[in-house]
């Protein structure tokens, strides 16, 4: 880095960069603050609209409303569990397979790569996929969150192309020392993969945490393994239907209620917060400038 001498051009570049970044910063921060503000604002006041980045009438009522749903806490635990188990399983599988596919001499390299690559694009349809899941007894089981989506071809290929960029000489010397492929993978490749592993791990983890559709399809009524996101979807749906186009009979329940808008925002906050808390810890792996050069020496 040329931190010693800065030219005029450098200052111009800096100015442009900071200006653009600032615009991005504001335009991405505003909606989030808006969500926070509405989530912490009085529900009937929010209906009037126009809440900016600060609540007009601060309250915790919207969140208290959420505590009425006993499955939320359990759902949170299941979500946490699936995020941890799912990320670990997927990450190990992806890296191991990626290493095998990165080996130019591997006999099935092309065949396997194509096979996995196409999984991203082929769509077998709802019913056939379900029948396979059912045949393996995965529906209504926790493992439906882990196994069918074990390897994402996208992540697999990212990791593979990262490994391919590593100098082959690193492996070669290990082979000369008599190491086998598995040892090379665990002892040499894995440590070098840290930046891409962190990234792909983040992708897997966020995917696991945010996912609700698999619960909806494969385990909608098994409360033992319901996830946080699915329960939040249920709450949202219920609050909406209070204003839905239903028959006369629906109107008989007697109560004041929190508006769907406020529920939606409170739900968004509950869903995002855990990721926000974890992110800084992951971030350091790919922002702090961990470099190949450093590892090599």
């Amino acid at each position: 880095m040329n931190r010693f001498r800065r030219t005029k051009g450098d200052y111009i570049i800096d100015f442009v960069i900071y200006a653009v970044t600032l615009v991005i910063l504001v335009s991405t921060l505003f909606p989030f603050l808006n969500v926070l503000a509405i989530a912490f604002n009085d529900s009937s006041d929010s209906v009037k609209g126009g809440v900016g980045i600060l609540p007009r009438i601060p309250t915790l009522d919207n969140f208290k409303e959420l505590t009425r749903f006993p499955l939320l806490l359990q759902g949170g635990l299941i979500s946490l569990l699936r995020t941890i188990v799912g990320t670990v399983c997927s990450l190990l599988s992806t890296c191991m397979l990626a290493y095998v596919l990165s080996r130019k001499d591997f006999i099935f390299k092309k065949f396997f790569t194509a096979l996995f690559l196409f999984t991203m694009y082929v769509d077998s349809g709802l019913i056939p996929h379900f029948m396979v899941i059912r045949t393996f007894g995965l529906n209504n089981s926790f493992w439906v969150y882990i196994i069918p989506g074990l390897i994402s071809a996208y992540n697999l290929i990212l990791v593979r192309s990262f490994i391919e960029q590593l100098p082959y000489s690193l492996q070669e010397s290990a082979f000369l020392d008599g190491a086998n492929d598995f040892t090379v993978f665990t002892k040499i490749i894995m440590p070098l993969c840290l930046p891409v592993t962190a990234t792909v791990g983040l992708f897997y983890a966020v995917g696991q945490w945010n996912s609700w559709f698999d619960t909806y399809l494969y385990a909608p009524f098994n409360e033992k393994i319901t996830t946080l996101q699915y329960e939040l979807m249920k709450i949202l749906q219920q609050s909406m239907s209070q204003q839905g186009n239903l028959s006369q009979a629906g109107k008989l329940a007697q109560s004041q209620s929190i508006s769907p808008l406020s529920i939606r925002m409170a739900v968004t906050v509950v869903a995002i917060l855990p990721i926000l808390l974890v992110y800084p810890f992951v971030q350091k792996y790919f922002v702090s400038g961990l470099t190949l050069g450093a590892v090599k020496s």
Binding site: A249, G250, L252, S255
Partner: peptide, 24 residues
Amino acid sequence: AQKLPGNDVKTAIGMMTYPWPTIG
């Protein structure tokens, strides 16, 4: 009590009027 939030859940009044058979 009907002016308070959550009263419908506490009493469950009206809960069985939909979609179960109900006279209007």
